[in-house]
Write a protein that binds this DNA or RNA. Structure first.
Lengths: 136, 136
DNA sequence: ATACTGTCCGTACCATAGTACAGGGTTCCA
DNA sequence: TGGAACCCTGTACTATGGTACGGACAGTAT
C-alpha cells in the first residue's frame, strides 16, 4: 500500500504540515507509523480522515466536536443516535446563526439605503445614528 | 450631569468592568475624566457608546471595525460615504456567511433525516458515512 | 564531500475578545 | 478605627485554530 510523508499528506489533503501535526496533537489524527528514521508514514485513510475533518469544519463543527465524532466512530459501542444527537445540536446552532445574521443583514441594508449623501460630514451619518438610536 | 463609576457603567451597559477597561485600551472608549483619587468618571454618553459597540458587534463588526466607525464619527473630515463603504463591505460578509450556513444546514438536515436507526452501531452510521464519502 | 531538501521536536507566536488576579489605594459606614 | 466594598495598574491567562522558528538529523543529488 502506498504511504505518504507528512509533507505529501499535507499536499494531498490540502493542509499545512504544521496543521497535520497539530491535528495529531489534538487527537484528530491517529499517531502514524514511523520509518526507521522516525518520519511519519501515512496512508490513504489519513487523507480521507483529513478530508473528513475539513468537511466537518465546513459543516460548522469545532475541532473538539470533530474529535468527538471521530472517537464515536472508533468506539463502536456508541449508537448512530449519539451521532445524530450531535448533528441535531449543530443544526440548531446553525439555524440560530442564520436567523441572527438575517436580522443583521436587514439592518445593514436599511442603513446603506438611507445613507445616500456621499459628502455629508459623518456627524450626521445615518449609519452611526441608526446604530446609536437603535439600541434597546 | 450624572456620572458613573466604572462599575456602574459596566452594570448599566451590561458588560464586565474588565471589558470597559479593555475597550478603553483598544480605543473604543475615550479616556474618561478621573476623580481626584484617580477613578474613572463616565456619563450617559459612555453608556450609549457601549450600547453602540454591542449593537455593532451584533451586526457582525469586529472590535477593530467598530473602532474604525467610531473614529470616523469623531473625525468629521471623513464623509458619510466612507462609513457607507464599511457597511457595504460588512453587508457582503454577512450575505456570504448566510449563504454558507444555509448550505451547511441543508447537508445537516439531509444527514439527520437519513439517520433513523437509533441503535445501530456507529460503524454503519449514515452521518459518518456521508461525511466520509461526501468529500470531493 | 557537501549542499539541498525534508523531517524531527518543542516552543513560541499570531489574532480575537476578553477574564482573572496580584498587590496596592480609596471611600464609606457603623 | 476597622473592615467591606470599590477602584487602580499591570501582567498573565483563557479558548480557538492554527503558523513560525530554531537546532538537529536523514536522504538524495551532483
Amino acid at each position: 500500500m502506498q504511504t505518504f510523508s507528512v509533507g505529501q499528506l499535507a499536499q494531498n489533503a490540502g493542509v499545512n504540515i504544521e496543521t497535520v501535526r497539530f491535528y495529531e496533537k489534538r487527537g484528530l489524527l491517529p499517531m502514524p507509523k514511523r520509518t526507521k528514521s522516525g518520519c511519519r508514514q501515512y496512508t490513504n485513510k489519513d487523507i480521507a480522515r483529513i478530508h473528513f475533518i475539513k468537511r466537518a469544519k465546513e459543516l460548522g463543527f469545532s475541532l473538539m466536536e470533530i474529535a468527538e465524532l471521530l472517537s464515536l466512530k472508533i468506539n463502536s459501542e456508541t449508537t448512530c443516535g449519539d451521532v445524530k444527537k450531535i448533528a441535531l445540536d449543530k443544526l440548531l446552532d446553525v439555524a440560530t446563526k442564520i436567523r441572527d445574521l438575517k436580522r443583521i443583514k436587514k439592518v445593514l441594508e436599511e442603513l446603506v439605503t438611507v445613507c445616500n449623501k456621499d459628502n455629508s460630514a459623518t456627524n450626521e451619518c445615518p449609519i452611526l445614528e441608526a446604530l446609536e438610536i437603535g439600541n434597546e
